[in-house]
Design a protein around this nucleic acid. Sequence first.
DNA 1: GCAAAAGTGTTGTGAATACACCCATGG
DNA 2: CCATGGGTGTATTCACAACACTTTTGC
Lengths: 247, 247
Amino acid sequence: MKNISQRMSSHKAGELVKDPTTLVETYPKVPLTVDCVLFGFEENVLKVLLIRSDLQVFDGLWSLLGDNVLDNEELDDAANRILKERTGMDDIYLEQVRSFSHPARHPGGRVITVAYCSLINIQHHQLKILDHELHWHEVQSLTKMAFDHFEILTYCNQWLQKRIQEHPLGFNLLPVKFSMRELQNLYEAILNHQLDRRNFRKKFASMGLLIDVNEIEDNVPHRPGKLYKFNFEKYEKNKRNWIGIDF
Amino acid sequence: MKNISQRMSSHKAGELVKDPTTLVETYPKVPLTVDCVLFGFEENVLKVLLIRSDLQVFDGLWSLLGDNVLDNEELDDAANRILKERTGMDDIYLEQVRSFSHPARHPGGRVITVAYCSLINIQHHQLKILDHELHWHEVQSLTKMAFDHFEILTYCNQWLQKRIQEHPLGFNLLPVKFSMRELQNLYEAILNHQLDRRNFRKKFASMGLLIDVNEIEDNVPHRPGKLYKFNFEKYEKNKRNWIGIDF
DNA sequence: GCAAAAGTGTTGTGAATACACCCATGG
DNA sequence: CCATGGGTGTATTCACAACACTTTTGC
């Protein structure tokens, strides 16, 4: 396969390429997939939606939800399509994380994949995941998966840990109305770290991004907590710009 | 082109795929390139290394340094290869940023590209860039480029702004020995923001990651500043783990 | 009244900010 | 001696961390 130096020497320096289509036809082509890491939160545990691998070499192992990218399909669209096919939902938080390209990552030959993270509220789509091949798995309990999917999951989990500290992603995993306790449980589960309850509440109170909906928890065997929803509009308006060296 | 539902219906549910190679052969294939955003720093200005596009439709426009990914080549390797071909250097800071996949981003048809950022010290490789098609361009002065490269550059520039505040990347753009003034100029150029000189020095002093090499600047028309080098070993040992909500 | 979690305030410490003067060097 | 930028210190403000008691509800 030609690399750029060889191609460049095939036409005179300074001479312009008139037919880009012919040029592109000389490029090697690779099979490209998107793998979605669908995170959810249930019973105070961070979970990920997995499917049993249908490859015999990975017999019994779990894999991420992936599919090949279609002709002329944007990667974002491919990820949204997979999400829709699996959960029936659209308008879901979804973000590209990174590409994985180890030549031997797929037993069927060279396949490059682009990992996407999505955070979904498990309550909101329980209907579609009755398919017995799909399963919400505790993130912490996984060690081995099909392909390089464990590596991808680990990377996305770290990405999520960092991301959730700087952006209000967590609210996508919670019900629209949630208690402070639920919010804190979510952060503790994702960060895998205990947080001081008073300081946590103080922090969110001082941000002024939670709206008290004047409702309280129901059916709890103790004093019910107040419910809040997140003020996405205010957040979008006041997004801060970071200046500050910190490492 | 088949998507996953169609493929899945072509073999019985529960039946395992025995020949992954045949499966992969059914995947659509796309031309894949890597584009390197090579940042440099000179005359207190952030620059990027560009080449004149050799496509006629982009006549006169500048483009990033890119090349197609070779068969069985890792993306990281492709990026390093391009870097080596263009600057003659290896062991350079290089990181994958994200993929760009708009179907019409390349006039020759569907080409997906993965953007990499690299930070290089302009002084260290002046020899190889005498090629008249290569040029260090001020990042701030660019508005229009070939392909979607202006979009990629803008994205990478923002990525760099964030990254440099949390990781000691900046030192890759400076000479091994540098003055506090040079360091601050670099940060101000990248962040596009003035910083208080005393607080900047205090911050870096308190981190304890700068080694005083007991040398001073030369040939400056004023009191010469002390020179430092960055203590990469100490940084690697003490890398901090972030816990803290901030948005 | 007991268990269980909600709700709340203060204090200390360290970091970021704002700000002004003297010093060393070259010309 | 003058111009230029190097080098330093302090006071204030703010954010974070640590920490304990009272309140409300279900049972």
